[in-house]
Design a protein around this nucleic acid. Structure first.
Length: 443
RNA sequence: GGAGGGAUGGCUGAGUGGUCGAAAGCGCACGACUCGAAAUCGUGUAGACCCCUACGGGUCUCGAGGGUUCGAAUCCCUCUCCCUCCGCCA
């Protein structure tokens, strides 16, 4: 099955725009070289196809032939067959590279996206909420001794990192008692928030195939970041690996829900809320964010996944919608946050527009990423082969978007640290109390 | 884990080497009939890629990959998935 992951016509029409996008996103892609390969493929394909056409035509006539004519024709056909096979092999070789290169090609970001090489060039858009009073520019200094979430968790016996590490190695943890209950409460609160707005809740598979990881754009690229299941057992001779992978976000499963389907326009946009544990190897992050629950191998997340019409205006409207949903959750919890325009170098090859939400974390004395909102145009839809039929009966690729609604335990960092009291207890935010049997305090 | 059966177009389902990208039925679209509708009749109805201004033409696809053959839905090998029965089990 031939994979076409990009709008080839568009690429052929304006290669410079793609080359610029690649450069801005920091990708080592030579668009000219790809186009050369593309042409090579096309030329050879033409040859191979006309060869096959001839073969097919003659083959059709063979049953009507007799005697010597038949003998010589068969002999000729045997020779033709062999040379066709050689050409086929060469074509496959070219197509393999052609497909692999396509997988690396970027989408073109919106003009409004800041151009920059990494996260240091992301741009703050706006802030919401007042920073907690006990926090000053020098970090913790207040009328009482402030604790970070690790100390709070330890003292309250609601987070147990040492035992997590004992069982499963670095970046593992237990939530315990009210800590575990608080996590469930905040997750359930976020789910209900979406449910009230008509969103459809999903508990998806937590394992997904290579096609899903590739289709959502995580592969190639994030292999090192992904846990594979059954990797040692390669079977078959297909090009696709048939391992399963633990998902790093339910976006992988939920966006793949309609893989290879043609949807009806009136069914769009879909508003899907995926709940799942998320697994990340965090390879290559040794020494980074080693303390506490910020960067860990396993967490839980409610993710918003939207499929919509191939219309940028509508896409951006939905982008606002899903970002607002997340903001509303943070506002209900009264957690200060800011919105960040993610720059080209930090956004990933498939993204067209991306904003992060960062929530204030006293122990870091800074905002820390808690949400990531993305508009991917038809990037995922092409890879996943998800189309819709518009009013005129034309089939088009959908556009996809996604945003975190809430991710835990990272959100527990601001939650515990900001709501801590002088007596060492933690006040439970009003909106979460119904989910904890009316409980008001952890202490 | 043991034993069998299966995978064909939107669906049901025929097809065991060429006349098959594929019967028939259903569904759907258009047309005729009708005041209108139902029924009936007629016509059409997979996708991807390539060539072409267009008309049109070509290649590939019958779960996936490979093989045999001039020629494969059909024969051979490997894999995947689904179903039924038995066992086990949250």
């Amino acid at each position: 099955m031939l994979l076409i992951m990009i709008d080839l016509e568009d690429l052929r029409a304006r290669p410079d725009a793609y080359q610029k996008a690649a450069k801005d996103k920091g990708l080592k892609i030579d668009v000219k070289k790809f186009l050369k390969l593309d042409k090579e493929r096309k030329d050879l394909l033409g040859k191979v196809e006309s060869g096959r056409a001839e073969k097919n035509a003659v083959s059709k006539k063979i049953p009507t032939m007799k005697g010597k004519e038949k003998e010589t024709t068969l002999e000729e056909m045997r020779t033709l067959s062999i040379s066709l096979k050689e050409q086929d092999a060469k074509l496959s070789e070219i197509e393999e590279e052609w497909e692999m290169t396509q997988l690396e090609l970027p989408t073109i970001p919106l003009d409004s996206v800041p151009i920059g090489k990494d996260e240091t060039e992301n741009r703050e858009v706006r802030k919401w909420g007042d920073l907690p009073k006990f926090n000053t520019s020098s970090g913790f200094s207040a009328s009482f001794k402030i604790k970070d979430h690790v100390k709070l968790g330890e003292d309250l016996d609601i987070i147990d990192i040492p035992r997590g590490v004992k069982l499963a190695g670095a970046r593992s943890y237990f939530l315990k008692g009210d800590g575990a209950r608080l996590e469930m409460a905040v997750l359930q609160f976020a789910l209900d928030h979406l449910y009230k707005k008509g969103w459809t809740q999903f508990t998806p598979p937590y394992m997904a195939s290579w096609e899903c990881l590739m289709g959502t754009g995580f592969f190639p690229g994030a292999e090192e970041q992904t846990y594979a299941v059954g990797a040692e057992e390669k079977r078959g001779s297909g090009v696709e690996a048939d391992d399963l992978y633990l998902i790093g976000t339910s976006e992988v499963s939920v966006a793949s829900y309609h893989k290879d389907e043609v949807l009806k326009e009136e069914d769009l946009p879909t508003r899907y809320a995926g709940y799942s544990p998320c697994f990340r190897r965090e390879a290559g992050t040794y020494g980074k964010d080693t303390k506490g629950l910020y960067r860990i191998h396993q967490f839980q997340k409610i993710e918003q996944v939207v499929l919509c019409k191939a219309d940028q205006e509508e896409g951006l409207k939905l982008f606002e919608e899903i970002r607002t949903n997340a903001e509303e959750v943070l506002q209900s919890l009264n957690l200060p946050y800011r919105i960040i325009d993610v720059c080209t170098g930090d956004m990933g090859k498939g993204k067209v527009f991306m904003q992060d939400i960062e929530t204030w974390m006293p122990s870091r004395n800074s905002y820390g990423e808690t949400h990531s909102c993305s508009y991917l145009g038809d990037f995922q839809a092409r890879r996943l082969n998800i189309k819709y039929e518009d009013k005129d009966g034309n089939k088009q690729f959908v556009h996809t978007l996604n945003n975190t609604c809430i991710a835990s335990p990272r959100i527990l960092i601001p939650l515990l640290e900001i709501y801590q009291q002088e007596d060492g207890t933690v006040t439970i935010p009003d909106v979460l109390r119904p989910y904890m049997g009316g409980q008001a305090v952890i202490g």
